[in-house]
Amino acid sequence: MSFESIGDFLAMGHHGAYVWSAYGLTLLVLTGNIVWPIMARKHYLQVEARRLRREERA
């Protein structure tokens, strides 16, 4: 453990703003990259399933 306290950890020795903004942005980008294909797949499957039903009825 290289920090004495939680406050110490958050401050990152006056570099807190740099370290946390870099990690925050990375978390955002990585999450977005995972969420997008999951949502797009869900959307595609729904649209296609509806299309197949319509074609079945027709």
């Binding site: 453990m1 020795g13 370290v19």
Partner: peptide, 12 residues
């Protein structure tokens, strides 16, 4: 949390 801080650059 665990890696030591850099002697020149600090925590950045």
């Amino acid at each position: 949390v665990f890696a030591p801080e850099d002697y020149q650059q600090g925590n950045s």
